[in-house]
Write a protein that binds this DNA or RNA. Structure first.
Length: 312
RNA sequence: CGCGGGGUAGAGCAGCCUGGUAGCUCGUUAGGCUCAUAACCUAAAGGUCGUCCGUUCAAAUCGGACCCCCGCAA
């Protein structure tokens, strides 16, 4: 099959590899332009671009893939299928009609649930027990196309956004390979999405990471796991940003959400509205990521202090 | 040159502003206490204070350059 691959994020890497090793001709990789990133705002390329370079594939990075200019370039490239994974730009009608067969999208949820930019994170935050990947035929509406294939996977208690993305990206590569086999045999069947079951997984923003200690310990724990590595769940200590990387919900209750219940012998326990939270790994602004024990040996935290914006 | 914090014993930190014996918590080792212990008590070991240059009688501390780590922002 002649394929044009649209992708940017790390979730797409395994699928791209699978296409290349699967004897398909990836005639072009479309990825987001290099952007200033990190400290000192150095330009950095997308993960897909780096991988595509390593694979020796042709790459374009249009500012707007729907522009006439981009479309003209794409018309030159033979394509039976477009494969779109974690690309990061909405694709519109004229572009979607370019491939001989159709544009496929690989999405990291069981559609119609969790349409949108951050399905993996929101599935964890909301405490879903299972999720999966969906391969759909793209239409001009966000993640709304007919479903060709879905694969399920359980969400483990220990899963974070990072571990789950890893699992799902592997699952996605397999599902994509299978979907293309079906298409080659002209055996593909599409199922319409149940519009009554639609839910959304909006793009993550920094503010989603701020911990509200008036939530329950279990919720906060899921927030921490669902938001690694970005934006991460955070609170404040002595006016500085304090990221919580890993924590476990405990049963002991506290009258004062955000209050330090225990800080010693390697244990750091914070009260929440329902239950308490034992912090396992944390990171203070400017510092590196530390175990609770290491953090405590250098910071004199006393029970009764609170983790919050204004307090010391 | 986007903004900012930091590099001091194995770990995490204080000391730096106001130069002049290197300190805290934990860990390690030895001894003690105990029916016993990762608990408690006592003692010890362990540091070119990121690197180089400069100022000074004297630099972890002041000035400069460079290296490395990190938060924000994007």
């Amino acid at each position: 099959m002649n394929i044009v691959f649209f992708g940017s994020g790390g979730f797409a890497l395994k699928s791209l590899e699978a296409l290349v090793t699967g004897a398909h001709k990836v005639n072009l990789v479309v990825t987001q332009p290099d952007k200033p990133k990190g400290r000192h705002l150095a330009l950095s390329s997308t993960e897909v671009k780096s991988k595509a370079e390593a694979l020796g594939l042709k790459i374009i990075q249009p500012q707007n893939p729907n522009s006439q200019e981009a479309i003209n370039a794409l018309k030159e490239i033979p394509a039976d299928l477009y494969v779109v994974i974690s690309y990061g730009h909405f694709l519109k009608e004229p572009l979607l009609r370019l491939p001989k067969l159709y544009p496929l999208n690989v999405h990291a949820s069981l559609l119609p649930k969790y349409r949108g930019a951050a399905p993996i994170n929101w599935a964890i935050i909301n405490g879903e027990r299972e999720t999966g990947v969906s391969i759909i035929r793209m239409v001009e509406a966000m993640d709304a196309g007919d479903i060709l294939l879905e694969k399920k996977i359980p969400i483990d208690d220990n899963d974070t956004a990072v571990t789950l993305e890893e699992k799902l990206s592997t699952l996605a590569a397999g599902a994509l390979t299978r979907a293309i086999q079906l298409i080659e045999k002209k055996a593909e069947k599409f199922i319409k999405q149940d519009t009554s079951a639609v839910s959304f997984a909006p793009k993550l923003e920094k503010r989603h990471g701020e911990i509200n200690w008036s939530n329950g310990a279990a919720e906060i724990s899921r927030q921490i796991k669902g938001l690694t590595t970005w934006p991460g769940a955070y609170t404040y200590y002595k006016g500085k940003l304090l990221k919580l990387w890993s924590a476990e919900a405990r049963k002991e209750n506290s009258k004062n959400p955000g209050e330090i219940l225990e800080a010693g012998a390697g244990r750091l326990i914070i009260g929440t509205a329902r239950g308490s939270l034992e912090i396992v790994e944390l990171q203070l602004e400017g510092g590196r990521r530390l175990s609770a024990a290491a953090f405590l040996s250098g910071h004199n935290l006393a029970p009764g202090n609170k983790f919050d914006k204004a307090v010391s």
